[in-house]
């Protein structure tokens, strides 16, 4: 009988331990409050800026992509000066040019085509142009097709579907205004022609087979070469998209902008910039764009 009493006592102790353990475990698992873990802070220095410098940018990409590629440039400029540089997006290129003319923005990123078509009437002046990966201030437009395509020349485009970037981009006008004329190709021989907002969209359309050929900047064409795209024709070297100022632009701020961007190539932050500008800038003048202006506008 004493043995049974001991057994019952032991069972009681085990059950007691079990119950107490279960109680504490229950309390522990249901109380899962966990405060905020402070994030690892980036190097951050509070800076008092003397003024804000707005830089216009045409909507050549989605706003998010513009911020991703252009905001680091603004941050770089802010670090290198006493001014806070901010992007000023616009809903149209006309709005950007208007902002330049009114002095609402000190400078603006314009496309080559837009600049050459608006430079004279609006007293715009190119101050900087981007360098390509070879360190040259040029880009080329490329006619791209799928790797296994039977299109080899302009004339092979007969009855084919052609994808082009924006009508406000040089690449969106190159074939029609320069190469088709040279080859004596009539645009109406194409089955279809369609403009897309972004160069990447053109490349994707060709890659997917929705269009037989397309035109993009050489930089974009190179991105897709390994993915089933080949370039069958390149344009002459075209001066890159300039940073443009107007008469109303503050000269001191422009100087600061120029000086900073001309030395930007050595800065580590350029890796996060839009790839068009990640090789740095060189000085630009309006005369650099006269040749292309003549070609596009058909001036003698």
């Amino acid at each position: 009988m004493r043995s049974y009493a001991k057994i019952f006592f032991l069972i009681f102790v085990v059950l007691l331990i079990f119950t107490v353990a279960a109680f504490f475990i229950f309390q522990s698992i249901t109380n899962f409050d966990r405060g905020f873990t402070m994030p690892e802070l980036k190097e951050h220095t509070e800076k008092n800026y003397s003024d804000t410098v707005f830089i216009g940018v045409i909507s050549r990409y989605t706003p998010e992509k513009i911020y991703q590629g252009y905001q680091p440039i603004m941050d770089f400029l802010s670090r290198r000066s006493k001014y806070l540089f901010e992007l000023k997006l616009s809903s149209s290129y006309e709005q950007t040019i208007s902002q330049l003319k009114k002095g609402e923005v000190t400078a603006a990123f314009l496309g080559t085509y837009l600049f050459v078509t608006n430079m004279d009437g609006n007293n715009l002046r190119a101050v900087l142009k981007p360098l390509n990966s070879n360190g040259k201030p040029y880009f080329r437009s490329a006619l791209i097709v799928k790797r296994n395509s039977d299109i080899h020349t302009i004339n092979d485009l007969k009855g084919k579907k052609l994808a082009l970037p924006s009508t406000l981009a040089f690449s969106g006008n190159w074939l029609q205004k320069i190469e088709f004329k040279k080859a004596g190709f009539d645009i109406f021989q194409l089955k279809e022609i369609k403009h897309f907002h972004y160069h990447n969209s053109v490349a994707k359309q060709v890659l997917m087979g929705n269009f037989d050929a397309g035109v993009v900047k050489d930089r974009v064409a190179n991105e897709y070469v390994g993915k089933g795209i080949k370039a069958i024709l390149y344009s002459e070297p075209i001066p890159g998209s300039p940073i443009v100022i107007s008469r109303k632009s503050d000269k001191e701020k422009v100087k600061i902008l120029e000086r900073a961007l001309l030395s930007a190539k050595s800065d580590s932050s350029v890796k996060s910039w839009d790839t068009e500008f990640s090789n740095g800038f060189t000085k630009a003048e309006n005369k650099d764009y006269l040749e292309i202006k003549k070609m596009i506008l058909g001036e003698k």
Binding site: D33, T37, P39, E40, L41
Partner: peptide
């Protein structure tokens, strides 16, 4: 104040 200096999302269990 900490959030001002980071671009990371942070989260917590709170009662």
């Amino acid at each position: 104040l900490a959030i001002d200096k980071t671009d990371k999302l942070i989260s917590a269990f709170i009662t």
